[in-house]
Amino acid sequence: MIKDMTIGQYFPGKSPVHRLDARLKILLTIAFIVMLFVADDIKGLGVGIAFTFITFIISRIPLKMMFKSIRPILIIIIITAMLNLFFVHTGTPLVEWKFIKITDKGVETAVFMVVRILCLIVGTSLLTYTSSPIDLTDAIERLLSPLKKIKVPVHELAMMMTIALRFIPTLLEETDKITSAQKARGADMETGSIFKRAKALIPILIPLFVSSFRHAEELALAMECRCYHGGEGRTRMKQLHFKLIDLWGTLYLVFFFAGVIVMNKIG
């Protein structure tokens, strides 16, 4: 049933990774991505792997969850590997058969690319696994707040994200209910051609649209009643403070980043 779906992929916990300030976590993730791309050979990447692995262990996110986030992009990983394997023709040939030519350099690049992508996915998923959606939205709003100066509606965007997060479970539940109701009226959504099935969705989509509009209208009214008037002059209950752990987190990343650079230099 769709209502069992989790929203975002937050996996609550109390690990040091969870406790980092969400703003810092976003910045560190960006630095981490840069780090992976700065590493230009296996040795440098080795440091990146070590960082990813250690952070993963510290975060205490179950391995199963991690596989779940890798699965959807498996196909991309395979394609990347194939492309590098077959189209990198420098280095010593290992296999040569008709038009297929695989070289040692090709194998090396393929492995390198695959490992880099895996690190990228694991590292960035750690961000979403260890921060609640609301913390992330908040963090993004605050990180982007300098953009308000150039008239980017940062507050409005963040508000929209919050409301979307708030209403996803409500709308999912409603979709469930409407689907059951139309099924009870004999709607057939399980058989027939794709075209027929798509058409069978109309009795679900229209009521869902109507109800979304109703939610929006009533919510807007309720927000107005609670003195909402945009981001101007707004304060926040939760103040984000950098703590000691955030300093440690930063140093931890800087240490590994330096490691990558050193590896690049000696390589």
Binding site: I134, I163, R166, H215, M223, C227, Y228, R234, T235
Partner: peptide, 29 residues
Amino acid sequence: VFQNPDNQIVATIVEEDVAFALENLGVEP
């Protein structure tokens, strides 16, 4: 306070929602 409780809760955490009006009014954290 309105009829449908779902349509008047703005935030994804209870206490954040209760804080909503006060944040709008610019009250000290």
